[in-house]
Design a protein around this nucleic acid. Structure first.
Lengths: 202, 202
DNA sequence: GGAAACTCTGAATGGTGATTCACTTCTTCC
DNA sequence: GGAAGAAGTGAATCACCATTCAGAGTTTCC
């Protein structure tokens, strides 16, 4: 009787699960949550629709996992940039750039994380994600205030504005002459962010 | 043979349609687009599900009408405030306050207009709505630059930041001690908006 | 009053997509 | 090799709504 899974088998199963999550992430980034049906995701992963349920109890559970992984990566990256030692204003500037650049480089995924229509469970994750983003920005703003390089203000609101602004720019790319290139857009965003936090003009 | 509808009958039909749109708006504001089924909306309006199709060819058409009406009102109100004569900085400040206050006073509707999951047709309307909001803000910012009361900047991005910031604050009310009252929140938002546009501190 | 044309009703229809399950295929262990 | 159990399959099932439609109720106009 075959009671125990061999280590190789366990690895294979784990790999299959990872592959499924990765493929699902791609599908979501390409077509959004609404269009990412179980069948579409299973097809992308090269398995049968029913097999998805070997790894996740429901489509919702898979969606939440996809969101958490992707969002977690973003929060981690931003956290590292913002928590680095050094001038808060400088860090804020870098943080906005990293946030925006990563979003622009993988626009589909960024849209899925920030704004795309999604089922309630994913929506709840999204709230948490935004909250964490804001907390990161807010911490730096508060530091800046304490060090006297930023004026008195509600850091949470400034942080909300920064996430909101980047999200807004992403969702509708502002086809404005003079802001067409990524670099120009990043420069404008950064300048706006610094003004928003009340940093003296560069 | 009854060929012509009497004026009273026409009025009654028109009123029924208006009532349907109004009830649908309430339902959407309360439970969001996703939960606003034809049955739920019809129940709210006190008619049968099938009767909805006397007034609109599809659920989508009704949803679009609901969105347009509500969004149109908001754009109009904001437009009046921002287009008033006077100091651009002052107008900007008032505009943000009006935008935010109205949103906070009818949070459900504001969320539906700005962010709630919705079908593609409504999503398209939303893009347009946001674009119009941004255009209004951007015009004032550009005026401020021209008059020399605001520093050189990309008005579109500042405008995007303002809409994004208010939306962000709305979606997740920042349960922060000291920012609990509407007035305090409005004051903080306004201050942030002025910094964001580069207006000198009040 | 009553025929014609309209509005309203709500149960039946139809389409979509998640989930299940009887079956096949693969692994483990004797 | 082969029995026992697990994983994989995909067609069938199920649930959920938007939409339709046959019949009931109203209004119009002679």
């Amino acid at each position: 009787m075959a009671y125990r899974k061999t280590p190789a088998e366990l690895r294979r199963l784990e790999a299959a699960r990872e592959h499924l999550v990765a493929c699902a992430t791609s599908v979501v980034a390409e077509v959004g949550w609404a269009q990412a049906s179980v069948t579409a995701v299973a097809d992308a992963a090269g398995i049968a629709a029913g097999s998805v349920y070997q790894h996740f109890p429901s489509k919702t559970a898979l969606a939440v996992e996809v969101f958490r992984r992707a969002a977690g990566r973003e929060v981690e990256v931003l956290g590292e940039v913002l928590a680095a030692p050094g001038d808060p204003v400088e860090r804020l500037s870098r943080g906005v750039q990293v946030f925006a650049r990563r979003a622009l480089e993988n626009r589909g995924l960024a849209y899925a994380l920030l704004a795309a229509p999604a089922e309630p469970a994913v929506g709840a994750e999204r709230l948490d994600f935004r909250r964490r983003y804001r907390a990161l920005f807010a911490a730096v703003v508060r530091e800046g205030i304490k060090e006297g390089v930023l004026p008195e203000q509600n850091g949470e609101i400034t942080a909300a504005a920064l996430t909101g602004a980047v999200g807004e720019v992403l969702v509708d790319p502002l086809g404005h002459p003079g802001t067409t290139t990524t670099d120009a857009l990043l420069a404008e965003l950064t300048a706006m962010a610094l003004r928003c936090a009340g940093a003296p003009a560069a």
